[in-house]
């Protein structure tokens, strides 16, 4: 193993981490504000990618415009889902989980019937390689790192600096306490679903640009996202970032030491070991 391979795989780790974090942030926002696990989160990610595919190939728009449109559409879908499906089930953890499993089936099959089961692909706008100290870094991977961490920074600022962001934090820490300050829980839940779904759509669109899109691509994202939020601490935003980095780097680096399958095993093994010592997750409370 030479240094170039190692750096390359570290970069891969960071780009996986970027995706995992984007997915996990949406899950954790919805979880902490609405008290539900939105298991169809991976399907939003998948449809976000298909959105970009159709907008770029059928309408001929460029990738960035397609990304913006698809992200806003998925955010809108999030608001519709909150209103119609999750608001009546808020706080009812098990029922909401079952409803979201139903959503997985519906959304997957709608996409399957429209787009078919074959993987589709579209061109990444980021092409070519960047050479640093003799190490070739592909722009498409690097773009995910920049996008992912840029969005994380933006989300941190949003939560810290805006009233809506502070209201989200407040609800996650004490729901009735927040309501008694005049915070409209319904409206903040809608904002959380919008943000969560928009982040998932961006993640899906970025992954679709590197690999391909298929109706079942969401399962992987959901699995990683859930692993990340459990490792990081349920409902914790910094936890989602740290957890995403750990799992992303394990996924990036382990394959060069062993096979991909063993690497997956080591990844989840590491999570189990960390949770044995810190059951509440890395930055979880209680």
């Amino acid at each position: 193993m030479d240094i170039s391979t190692l750096l390359q795989s570290i970069l891969n780790g960071f780009s996986s981490a970027g995706i995992y974090i984007l997915v996990a942030l949406g899950l954790t926002l919805v979880l902490s504000i609405m008290n539900i696990v939105q298991l169809a989160h991976g399907e939003i990610y998948m449809i976000g990618a298909y959105g970009v595919y159709y907008i770029t190939t059928s309408l001929g728009l460029n990738f960035f415009l397609a990304l913006v449109i698809s992200t806003l559409l998925m955010g809108g879908l999030g608001i519709v889902l909150e209103r119609l499906c999750f608001r009546p089930l808020r706080g009812q953890f098990d029922r909401a989980a079952i409803a979201s499993i139903g959503l997985i089936l519906i959304l997957q099959n709608v996409v399957l019937s429209i787009a078919g089961g074959d993987p589709r692909s579209y061109m990444s706008p980021f092409t070519g390689v960047l050479k640093i100290l003799g190490v070739a870094i592909s722009w498409d991977r690097l773009s995910i790192v920049l996008f992912g961490f840029g969005l994380v920074a933006a989300l941190f600022l949003f939560i810290r600096m805006t009233k809506t962001g502070q209201a989200m934090l407040a609800i996650s820490q004490d729901r009735d306490g927040a309501a008694l300050q005049g915070i409209n829980i319904d409206r903040i839940s809608m904002a959380a679903m919008f943000l969560g779904c928009a982040l998932a759509a961006i993640a899906g669109a970025l992954v679709g640009a590197i690999f391909s899109v298929s109706p079942t691509m969401g399962g992987f994202a959901l699995m990683k996202g859930i692993a990340v939020i459990i490792l990081g601490g349920l409902g914790s935003i910094p936890g989602a970032v740290v957890g995403g980095l750990i799992i992303g780097l394990i996924d990036g680096i382990m394959p060069i030491l062993t096979t991909t399958h063993i690497a997956g095993l080591i990844g989840f093994g590491a999570i189990i070991i960390i949770l044995l010592f810190r059951p509440q997750g890395i930055s979880g409370h209680e």
């Binding site: 502070q166 934090l169 407040a170 004490d174 306490g177 005049g182 915070i183």
Partner: peptide
Amino acid sequence: VQVPEGRRLFPYMSVMANIKLGAYL
């Protein structure tokens, strides 16, 4: 306005942030 039983503060936010949230509306 209610100051609820058990205070119902936002424990992981700063004192300042809690005070500002009181003026949310």
